[in-house]
């Protein structure tokens, strides 16, 4: 099966007066229809930025410095999203219609002054030639599909009248309104409590199957990602440091950072052992360490080359890649 989306050696930088601070460096990944890719990383790892680039939504000041993002439409040739004009007609035809996105803060991502129904209708009518009435009944249908108890009432309500979980369901309904082929979820459950999180994740997985969507699920929580994703990519300071099938990465993590993330999870730590915490904090993008970006925090520091030499991507096993000197 052809890849739905294929990101190749993508680099994004932020221009300051005279120099460009790289925020994403040489990241590559791909997603097939019906497949879920999980992207894991702490804040500042460039995971959200990479995802936004897929929709052509690099924030002001950001610039794609190299690489390509090719999207394969249902029919016809693949398009390189990086070559489309910003906010132009071509990219807007993809946004919301073929590639949809769910954001972290459902409250802040919904308009405070429009009803839920109104917002879904706007998206629907942007991409399909629907009458207002038809769009509204479709919107109610969608709200029903995401598990809202009384969808017709919800459609007439405002974001501030809903609970956090309901807001995120409304966001999901809006994202799914035009039956997208790829769904990008940027930390969709971070703002939710654990029970609601489980419900939303379950809903997303079910909908993915129903629609046979490709899905990119971004989270800082490697445990959560491991439940959903077929494949996982771990990012650190703008680079992909490990990627592979979820079971490979979980069972035999190749990068010390991934190991550290996993050891911090109760479910993965050895029974009786103290939960490990990752020491130090993510360095600022402007103060990237020399050599391997992770070396100042690395528990398996392997000598001077970690400080001086940037590790290249190494193949650990089939389709399991890691960027670490330990695997040379």
């Amino acid at each position: 099966m052809k890849d739905l989306i294929r990101v190749d050696e993508l680099s994004i930088g932020f221009g300051l007066k005279n120099w460009v601070i790289p925020a994403v460096e040489g990241v590559s990944f791909s997603v097939k229809p019906g497949e879920t890719l999980g992207i894991v990383g702490e804040s500042g790892s460039g995971k959200s930025l990479s995802a936004r680039a897929i929709l052509g939504l690099v924030p002001p000041g950001g610039l794609i410095t190299s690489g390509s993002i090719s999207y394969q439409p249902e029919s016809g040739d693949a398009v390189d999203i990086t070559s489309l004009p910003k906010n132009g007609r071509a990219i807007r035809k993809l946004r919301g219609a073929e590639i949809a996105m769910i954001f972290q803060e459902p409250m802040a991502s919904l308009s405070p002054v429009h009803t839920i129904g109104n917002q879904i209708v706007t998206t629907l009518r942007q991409h399909a030639d629907l009458s207002a009435a038809a769009a509204l009944s479709r919107a109610i249908e969608l709200l029903d599909q995401v598990g809202m108890a009384s969808p017709a009432i919800i459609a007439g309500q405002y974001a501030h009248q809903l609970s956090g979980g309901m807001r995120q369901r409304a966001m999901i309904a809006m994202a799914l309104s035009c039956s997208p082929r790829l769904l990008v979820c940027d930390e969709p459950t971070t703002a939710l409590d654990a029970t609601t999180e489980a419900q939303v994740v379950e809903l997303l997985m079910k909908l993915q199957q129903d629609f046979n969507m490709g899905m990119i699920f971004i989270s800082h929580n490697i445990g959560l990602v491991s439940e959903i994703a077929d494949r996982v990519m771990v990012m650190y300071l703008g680079q992909s440091i490990e990627s592979g099938a979820t079971e490979h990465v979980l069972k035999s993590p190749a990068h010390p950072y991934t190991r550290a993330l996993l050891n911090a999870l109760p479910a993965f730590a050895e029974a009786g052992a103290e939960l490990a915490t990752l020491q130090g904090a993510v360095p600022d993008l402007t103060a990237r360490p020399t050599g391997c970006s992770f070396h100042p925090r690395c528990a398996e520091f392997a000598g001077p080359q970690c400080e001086t030499e940037r590790p290249a991507i190494q193949v650990v096993t089939n389709q399991h890649l890691a960027r670490c000197h330990l695997h040379e």
Binding site: N87, K93, F103, T123, H127
Partner: peptide
């Protein structure tokens, strides 16, 4: 940003 992601001009 969310509105942009819906493909609105």
């Amino acid at each position: 940003e969310a509105a942009r992601a819906q493909g609105l001009p």
